[in-house]
Amino acid sequence: MRDSVATRRRVGLIFAAVWAVYLVDPLRRAWSLDDPLERAYSLGVVVAFGVCFVGAYWYLLRGSGGRDVWIDPHPRTVVVPLALLCALMAAAAPTLHSEVLGLAIFVGTFIAFALPVPRALVALAVLILATTVVPQLLAGEPPAYATMSSIAMSAFAVGGIREVIRRNQQLSLARKQLTELAIAEERLRVGRDVHDILGHSLTVITVKTELAQRLLDVDPERARTELADVERLAREALSGVRSTVGGLREISLEGELANARTALSAAEIEASLPDSDELPVRHSVVFGWVLREAVTNVVRHSGARHCTVRVTGTTIEISDDGVGSGGEPHFGSGLSGLRERVRATGGTLTVSNRPEGGLRVLASFPAGLTKELE
């Protein structure tokens, strides 16, 4: 969460800084004022407006209570910066006169980025009337159509960017919820399997044990029979548990390719996978583990649009066109465990950034290796 907040802050600062370049005209107008006091006052107000504008995006994108504020920002994260921007714009009007209308464009872009569409439309209408229509009509002049058009077009562009970000966040949230739902369903399935295996057996074992205890003094022979049944039931239950656990741990390259195809398709990542009839028999288990971990990382972290899997008799390579690691690849707990699995079977695991972008995971084994992961 901390990394996500830091990323949002950087995005907000960069986004606002790009727009702040257009404060050059108001600054030039303020610098050209003849009166030194008016010049200093105007420069100070314009600079304060720029700082407030950049800070407004930082404040909006900083995160709030672990929730994505781009989707539904809290009113305080919008009203406070917006009110301050409007106050500074009004403060610059007595000295900058018509040049102050350029600041209204900045206010319009912030409204379009920060507010939901219905509220943004109302706020933009109020802003345009208050800055480009009403003052001009009161002064007996026509509305400032050029500024009005600039406010509307700038707001439309920034509003479109906001909608793209919003929809991407909603898609990411939906994927996360689907993943959590799949995990919950798998836990329920395992729970049902264990209950089916052990529930009946343990109930019968309990009843027979109680019966054997009562028969020890009355009918020892029958008590021994009941205890023999208890032993048999316990062994059957233990065998069932082992079978269930074994099924959960069983892994193969063919099965993991099918899982990878499903996972990548669900994440809307185009997959290039080998045909099942071309798969090598040797190293199938360890190749399956490599494929599972690599595809999991692609789905969760890469932001990729395409993933390619190549398999030979001694290697498996998984590559994507995502964001890569942003530096030297970091071996987290998943990749570290995977590296130990590959090393235990006599192979080597390499994780590297691709020159064209994305990450490459390669597990390779010597050609004559016969050892396999059990």
Rank of each mutant, 00 (worst) to 15 (best):
T131R: 04
D68Q: 10
L115M: 15
T95Q: 09
L121K: 12
T95R: 07
P73N: 04
W31L: 13
S149Q: 08
G66K: 03
L124D: 05
T147N: 13
L33T: 03
A120R: 07
V78G: 10
W31Q: 11
V46M: 05
L82D: 06
G44I: 06
C86R: 15
L60F: 15
P36Q: 02
L127R: 00
A144S: 05
L129P: 07
E38H: 06
D34N: 13
V45E: 06
P36M: 04
A130Q: 09
V46N: 09
A90R: 05
A120C: 06
G50M: 01
T109H: 09
G50P: 08
R76C: 01
T131G: 00
I71S: 07
V45Q: 07
G63E: 14
G55C: 01
V107E: 08
A90E: 05
V126C: 10
L61Q: 09
P143Q: 08
G50I: 03
I71L: 15
H97A: 08
P143G: 06
A120V: 00
Y57H: 15
A40G: 04
R67L: 10
R76A: 09
D34G: 14
P116G: 04
L84W: 14
L85M: 12
W58Y: 11
S32M: 09
V78D: 12
C86N: 11
P143L: 02
A87E: 13
